[in-house]
Every structure is written in structure tokens, then in C-alpha cells.
Design a protein around this nucleic acid. Structure first.
Lengths: 341, 341
DNA sequence: TTGTATGCGTTATCAT
DNA sequence: ATGATAACGCATACAA
């Protein structure tokens, strides 16, 4: 069964200690000094000792991992925490919430000080310098929904933004729309661009044009989206449908429609993105592209745990599928409800 | 300095073991059998042992405090985390979120293992045993909104539930209601009782009776509240106003009214408690008593920091004021809107 | 048997 | 001194 013939006893002798102590090291027990632990682990490594395959090993418990996030308020943060926490609990870990904001810029220093064993960076735009520091310190990192696109060399998890944009387009095309506009977020945010690209390419595949003047850029904010909507409605041939790249901006569209007396969905169909809680409370309930934030966060944490043990791996990237949530803000351009057709 | 005179040695003797073993138990070390741990903790509990206040020992993960909470999902948890995080950030601390649920019962062990320097317990019903263990290990604790009332000897922060109940009553009295009912949560929850008590005493002060048959108990659940409302509406002289001790239960009242075709607020005024996000989205928007959860959480953390340095203090208790949020679910019993009078 | 894991006491050490 | 913690090894229990 055991071809190498290495036993705990041999390691113990070479380390100048006894079998139980070596066993404790290998089981992550508490009664071992750092020096001894170090010595034993070195010998274990060079001797190539392998534990005889018995029943599954008890998980090494009692640790923590970090969730670095730009703020804890709001439903996105709540879902992110929820997913990370669930996946962490499965590994018997607690989650340290580290807020990285304007007034808390030295989050890297805090991770280093407490010898973090790994971090999920959620909606945090880390500088190359910061990422290099963490890499240098041997702290593995996974990016969750990076705002500046998949960073080369850094593992990440995101939503299938492109596919989500396409799904929005297909939904509107199915209803018969051909005069369509889109409101993006900040143009320098990669995921805004990905949603727009997916949207446009699906339209073009169906032979529907999306001219430049039908593409507006708000900055993810409700008020800006309301302004953009005003402009779109003022054109000579206003669109019969608008795809807002976030639910928040979709509410801006609602706002503009209220001001202008445009009826949703009969005169204008609206599709959002994210599926925030308020999407189902507004009138009419908003059709939107659901981002599986909780699942994405859980996936990010699991990826992190994988990286913690297996550093050999090449920078992985996971994209989770979005889904269309059909509510009442979309209808056929003739004013019929989606189910009438 | 130490008046009780209890030492680890005494506990060790009574437990039939030695000092180091007892020490291991209180430090969350691994080399202790469950049986021994159990025996020692029992003695710690009954002896009321408290670790002598030396200078704080370095926690395993520096610069952190614990938030122990029953779950991270939902708006209550989100606000609690938000408040704790804000106050922690002010002290340059990160927050470890420790979920204490059915499948994660050993949160105390995790706190001990990582030498937590203090914890806010939010919506966690800690057993006397658990509280004694933490006291013995010298980990200060503050209870946030304890469901079973201020626990003697344990610092806590809560909402002014009694005053909130009174405020609800005064609001309805001002509108001219005299035929009023209340739906409480679980009768064994102290804060449900406090809300009802405050409500009743304000009514009685105004000479309005609240007979027993006008006091219903649901179990904080929407469906139960709907049932209770059905019964209240079936009586010979149905009330013109209902105070539900939580927003969730208020939605149950809405549900019953929809079924019975009772118009809110013209035929029935409804007041909730909590001010959940959906309170402002429902139709009609719900008048409710707002709990300042974020501020309460921040206050709990600040209290914890005070306790960390100054253990001399006697178990403090803080109650934060609630406020009436007037929306559209309340009107005068004649059907006029609140502002018409 | 032999290899491994666990519990607990011994001894040394540290802080007051 | 005394109370408390740290780390090691003995004794034992358990598994192939």
C-alpha cells in the first residue's frame, strides 16, 4: 500500500521530536510551536510523505477569509455577502468584511497585518500596485464582477454580461420591436460595454439597426438615465423600447416617462438589468435581466479556496449565466401585452 | 482586586483535572475531549469565573471585532451590518461576520479559537451557558435587540419598543380612532409584549379601552396575521384601526383586507412596526414605526469598544428612540385623509 | 502488529 | 509568590 516507506516516526526522528507532535502538525492542532511546525512541514515536504488514504480528513477549521467590498449597504452587497458567507460556512470559515472606500484606502495593509489567507474583491477597483503587493505576500485573490474587465493574470468571476445583453435584445425582438434604444453605464466600465455589445449584436443578427444616436451613456445613476430618456423621447422617431443597463437606470426611465406622460409598457417597453428588489415593487413591475449575484459570490469564494491550496493553477475565469425575468414593463409595440401575442 | 477568588485551579480540582486543561478549554484549543470541555464549562458557568483583566492578549486576527448574527440575508441584517461596520471603521477595525444558525451552532468555539476581542450578538439567542463561557474567556459581548428581553448582567442595545407602541397609539388617537385592535408577535418575545404594553397604556391614558378580544397574537408571520385579521373583522363591531407589531404582519393585514374587500385606509387604518423597505412600496404605502437599526447597531459596537477597555462598568443598556413614519395606510375613521382634519 | 490520532498531564515560561 | 499560558511527550485508543 505504502511504497515510499516514509512514516511519521521517521519524520519525528529527523525533526528531533516524537510521533504525536508530527501528527498534530499534520492535523492543524493547536499545541505546536511555529518553529516546530515549520521544521516538520519542511521534512514532510522533502520526504514526500503522503498520508495513508483513510476516510475523508476532517476540514482544518477555525479560519477566516476576507471579503473586500466597497460598501455593505444595498442589495448587491447583501447578496454578495450572502453568497460568500454560504460558501465560507461550507468550509467552516468566517468572513471578515473589509470595506475599501474613500476613507478606508489602506485595505491592503490591513490584509497583510492580519496575514489574510485569501480575499474576494467585490466591486473594488484594485490598482496594479495593490494586486502586486498581495501576490508578493502570497495572499490569493479573486475578483468579483470587476468593473474594469477581466484583469490579466487575476482570477475572477463575473456575470455573462454579453449574453445578458443579447437576451434583452431577443426578448424585445420577440415582442416585435424594431425601434430600440439602449442606455449604458459609464463607457469605461467593461461590463457596461459588454451588455451593450451583446445587445447590439443580437439586434444586428436579426437585421435590426442600432444607430449611434440610439445609444446613450448615463453614469449608472437614476437622474442621468432620466435625462438621457428625455433626449431619446424628443427625437423625431422615438424608440418603442429601451434597454437600460441597470435597474437603477431603468427607474430613471420610469421617471422620465411619468414626467412626459408616456405609458409603460403600452407606449414604451423597458428592460432593466440586475433584478434589484425594487424591480418587482415598482409600477409596472420591471422586466429585467437577473444577475445571479449570490451564486457568483459563492463561486468566487470556492475559486479562492481552490487557489489557496493549489497555486499552480493558471488564472481562472468563471462567468455565470443571467436570466430574463419577464414582468409587466414590456409589451408588443402595438400595445398588446406580451402574453396576448 | 479579585473578590470572588475563583481560579482555574479551583475549577480544575472540581473537574478532576489540571490547570492547563481548563486553560485550554477557555482558549478554544483543540486538545480537549468533548466530555472534559463540557464538565469544565459547566463549572465555569456555575462558579461565575471571570478571567482576570490583564492587558488584552493579541487576537489571532488583529484589528477585528465579531458580529454574530443569525443570518446575513434581508434588510434587518443589512442595516445591522451597516451600522456595526460604520462604527468599526471609525475605530479602524474590520468586522468578522459569524453566522450562528441551526447548522452553525458552535459559534462560541470559533470566537474562542480566534481569541475574539469582543462580539456584538445580533438577533442571536445565546444560552446562559454560552454567555458564561464568553465571560470566562474574557470576551466582552453586547446584545443587539435581544428577543427575550434585557438579559440580566449582559450589556445590550434595543429599540424603545414601549415608546414605539405608544407612538402608534397616539397617531391613531389623533386621527380620531376609538375602536382599535392590535396584532402582536410571539407572546414570549419581550419586545412584542413591550410594543403591546406601550400601545395599550397610551390608549388607556386617553380613556380608550383595549379589551382582550382585540389583542391577537400571530407569530410574526404574514399568514398568521392575515388569519388574525379575518377574526378581528368578523366580530360584531370590527375595529377601524389595527396596529400590527411588525411590517411583515401588517402585510398580512393587507392580505386579509384584499380578500374581504376592505379598503385601506378608508375602512381600516393600518400601522406597522420596523419600516422595512417594502413598507414604502406596497399599496397604499404603509404608515409604520421606524426602528433605527443602523444606529442601534452602531451604538452596540461603540458600547462594545467601551467595555473592551473599561470592564469595571456595570451592565449598560441603551434604548434608541423610534419614530412614526406617516404614509397612506392611516386615515380618520370617517374616511378622511390624515391631513384633512 | 505497526502506523496514526487524541486526550491530558508535565514542565517550562510568562505576567503580575 | 501566584495565576495563567505554551509546547511537548506519554499513554492510550483506534485502524489496517
Amino acid at each position: 500500500v505504502d511504497e515510499s516507506g516514509i512514516t511519521l516516526n521517521e519524520i519525528a526522528l529527523r525533526a528531533g521530536t516524537t510521533v504525536p507532535t508530527v501528527s498534530k502538525v499534520l492535523n492543524g492542532r493547536s499545541d505546536v510551536s511555529d518553529a516546530m511546525r515549520e521544521r516538520v512541514l519542511a521534512l514532510v515536504e522533502q520526504s514526500g510523505y503522503t498520508r495513508p488514504a483513510r476516510r475523508a480528513r476532517a476540514p482544518i477549521s477555525g479560519g477566516t477569509i476576507d471579503l473586500v467590498i466597497s460598501g455593505v449597504e444595498g442589495s448587491w452587497a447583501n447578496h454578495a455577502l450572502s453568497g460568500v458567507e454560504a460558501a465560507a460556512a461550507a468550509a467552516d470559515l468566517d468572513v471578515i468584511v473589509t470595506v475599501a472606500g474613500k476613507d478606508r484606502s489602506d485595505w491592503v495593509g490591513r490584509l497583510l497585518a492580519r496575514r489574510s489567507s485569501g480575499a474576494v474583491l467585490a466591486l473594488v477597483s484594485a490598482t496594479p500596485r495593490q494586486l502586486a503587493t498581495l501576490r508578493g505576500a502570497g495572499i490569493p485573490v479573486v475578483l468579483l464582477d470587476p468593473t474594469s474587465g477581466p484583469t490579466p493574470g487575476v482570477p475572477s468571476v463575473g456575470a455573462a454580461n454579453r449574453a445578458g445583453g443579447s437576451a434583452a435584445a431577443e426578448h424585445l425582438l420577440e415582442l416585435g420591436h424594431t425601434s430600440i434604444a439602449v442606455i449604458g453605464g459609464r463607457p469605461d466600465h467593461a461590463y457596461s460595454q459588454a451588455r451593450i455589445d451583446g445587445f447590439r449584436s443580437a439586434l444586428e443578427r436579426a437585421g435590426v439597426a442600432l444607430p449611434e444616436e440610439r445609444i446613450a451613456h448615463a453614469d449608472w445613476r437614476r437622474a442621468s438615465a432620466a435625462d438621457a430618456t428625455m433626449h431619446l423621447l424628443e427625437t423625431r422617431h422615438p424608440p418603442t423600447a429601451i434597454f437600460a443597463c441597470s435597474d437603477t437606470m431603468a427607474l430613471g426611465v420610469y421617471e422620465a416617462c411619468t414626467v412626459r406622460g408616456v405609458a409603460i409598457p403600452h407606449e414604451l417597453s423597458v428592460v432593466g438589468f440586475d433584478d434589484l428588489p425594487e424591480a418587482k415593487w415598482v409600477t409596472p413591475p420591471l422586466t429585467t435581466i437577473r444577475q445571479p449575484v449570490t451564486e457568483m459570490a459563492a463561486a468566487a469564494l470556492r475559486m479562492l479556496l481552490r487557489l489557496r491550496t493549489d497555486r499552480s493553477q493558471d488564472t481562472p475565469r468563471e462567468e455565470l449565466a443571467t436570466s430574463v425575468v419577464t414582468r409587466s414593463s414590456t409589451a408588443s409595440p402595438d400595445g398588446k401585452s406580451p402574453r396576448d401575442g
